[in-house]
Design a binder for these strands. Structure first.
Lengths: 393, 393
DNA sequence: GGGTATATGTTTCCTGCGGGAACATTTTAC
DNA sequence: GTAAAATGTTCCCGCAGGAAACATATACCC
């Protein structure tokens, strides 16, 4: 490798990836694809970058970078601008920026509302539509809303090129993304949501769990930016959603049900949870309880203690570099920050517990849209030349 | 890619890997390295394979496979044999097998004994030395033993070529493998064990946590062979060691302390643990307690219930395809198999809980040697042409 | 204002790798 | 003994990135 990064690579404690390699040959053109991907990914996450920076970051030759950037420009994915004044000596390097007319759509069906956004490849939310609903939407409702909102948004943006649509669903999604297995608050069970959306919208569609999408967004443009080992807890009306990034890989599990930290047992003699067990985190700390305790310091302390216990347990399993709290857990952390941090430190059994940063998630109301769009952009980022875009009518 | 495998690749829910790619260019010769690695890895895990099988598995051209295998043979890593009688029509394909004189050393310092083995690249344990000790060995003891035993083993094997030495340490190891941060039962703290071993033995040395090494071995040649999402629990005199494979990646954590499932809180009103918390799994279920309960059915039932609760919690977090139990937890599972499985099913909150296989680990007394040797082989497997072997004097 | 140093873009040529086709080899089937 | 099938081998091609020479655009110095 041209230069060492701090990144864990495949052999380094990653046995399975090594065996996987055995099942794949590598052709010459994979190299090209990989490098196009590397450049588009770099400007996607890193914002506008000069060709010179790309050359340094990738270790590739100037001439190679030139050819790659030209190809990305011809594909309509990036634009090259003349450099701004830098004050540095030497010929100014051209600035490569992602084209903002390349967008992904993001859909978030929730109990009380349907929301769709168009997110540019630079992470900006360009347009959004929201519809409040009085009863939880059916899958058909969500598809109809998505179809209508996608048309409006495309008109508003004047002919964007669309990489696809990502949907963030509050519930269990099968590991292949095809089936919403169980979204209890929506009342969806065994719904082929991906296929329904894809057929209606005539776009590539990816469906995933909302917590995973949230963490993805925070990793991409939020509070966990670039941190590869992260635990994420989101408190919402539908309970506590969890997700984790393990060495740069999203924890999904064998069937797609990984990261359900809301059903981690915290009090063995606690209240019975809807899942059948006792003392699950989301049974012990939830929105109604926190609302009721808004002005009860002792109760809030108790909930903070419970949250700290959950975090300590998760640190014990994952040893994350950061723990991200969103939703009402972020709110609880805001009002009991010192207590939570102190109790986590006290409960941690390992050395250097103070190294773990506990933080509130950053992206607020855009989080799920950004995360779902990120997911929709993924195929394009991996294979810029081989992934067609859909031009909105 | 030439053909789809069932493997999660980088973009598929793995945001960080995508960004990582941005930091790396790919040179043309990476392709060669990748393909050499793929072939050596395939015969390492898959045993002897014909060239024709390699051609099919990798999707590479016959001529390319020919060149790659020739290079591996010139490097002294594989041998080509004439085919056995197959009964099939057509010219018989040559059989490629790893050379058994290519070995890795594996060291396991434990409270009551020091052990070193030589493991061939096909996974066979060729030789071993063991020394019982009355008091826990110091790092210096372990280094001295390793030096002596390595000499003996090399002599016995008549000039093996050594890829390196892997050490499996019962304790916390820093993420870079340099420092044994805390091995309580050995009494080691902040020991630069890797460097000490490397200087004494003049070999590449890798140090890791014993549970990680154990899971690695089971994944390579044992009960978790090829399963990419696995939770592993090992009960030993030093407590409960845990490890997990997440989408083919070893869970390590930001500082190397991940997977400490022995300190997962199981009974919030349980006994106080040495880590300062209450009701940790290893405080609730441990060797002394199980020994005392050997003929007490009710007590065994209780421990089985506790184990099931821990497994249910881990399933909730990891959604593994398999849960592997080793050491005394394997023993407990053997005598309470039905109960454990039934309770795990009852406690699981997700659908299809019966899909998760709970099994006893398979490799027995060779596990840590095989796992540590696997770890030592990793650099060679990743870069066969660029990783020098040490010829034993 | 002009020359020089510096950094970058561009062009040209080279090397290395895998693919493919033709040919050689070794087996089974009839 | 001949044909068919599968595989190994050889030779040549295309494509990707690297290196060096050259072109270009800036800052700095006088």
């Amino acid at each position: 490798m041209p230069e060492a990064t701090g990144i864990t690579d495949a052999t380094d404690e990653s046995p399975a990836e090594a065996r996987v390699a055995a099942a794949r040959g590598s052709r010459n053109d994979h190299t090209r694809r990989h490098n196009l991907s590397a450049l588009l990914t770099a400007v996607h996450y890193g914002g506008p970058l000069t060709r010179a920076q790309l050359t340094r970051d990738t270790g590739l030759n100037r001439s190679t970078i030139g050819g790659l950037v030209t190809e990305l420009a011809e594909l309509g994915l990036v634009i090259e601008d003349a450099a701004a004044e830098t004050g540095a000596v030497g010929r100014p390097s051209l600035i490569v920026r992602p084209r903002r007319d390349v967008v992904a759509l993001a859909l978030h069906p929730d109990v009380d509302a349907l929301e769709l956004g168009a997110v540019a490849i630079d992470g900006t939310v360009l347009a959004r539509r929201r519809a409040s609903v009085s009863a939880p939407p059916t899958p058909a409702d969500a598809v109809a809303f998505a179809w209508e909102a996608a048309r409006e948004v495309a008109a508003e943006l004047d002919g964007p090129r669309i990489a696809g649509l990502g949907a963030a669903v509050p519930g269990l999604v099968s590991v292949d993304g095809e089936v919403v297995v169980d979204a209890p608050h929506l009342g969806w069970r065994e719904v082929s949501f991906r296929e329904q959306l894809a057929e209606a919208l005539e776009l590539p569609v990816t469906v995933g769990n909302d917590a995973n999408m949230g963490l993805r967004a925070e990793w991409s443009f939020g509070a966990a930016r670039g941190i590869d080992t992260v635990v994420y807890l989101n408190g919402s009306a539908s309970g506590i959603g969890g997700a984790a990034l393990v060495g740069g890989r999203m924890l999904r599990g064998g069937r797609g049900y990984g990261g359900e930290f809301g059903h981690m047992m915290i009090r063995s003699n606690g209240e019975r949870c809807s899942c059948g067990r006792r003392g699950c985190l989301e049974t012990e700390v939830n929105a109604p309880r926190l609302d009721a305790a808004a002005h009860d310091d002792a109760a809030l302390d108790g909930y903070a203690e419970t949250l700290a216990l959950a975090i300590a347990n998760l640190e014990c399993a994952f040893d994350p570099d950061a723990v991200l709290l969103a939703g009402y857990l972020g709110g609880l952390f805001d009002v009991r920050r010192e207590l939570v941090q102190q109790r986590v430190r006290a409960l941690a059994f390992r050395p250097d517990a103070e190294d773990v940063a506990i933080a509130r998630a950053a992206l607020g109301g855009n989080r799920l849209l950004i995360g779902a769009a990120e997911r929709a952009f993924a195929p394009l980022l991996q294979d810029p030349a081989g992934t067609p875009l859909t031009v909105a009518a």
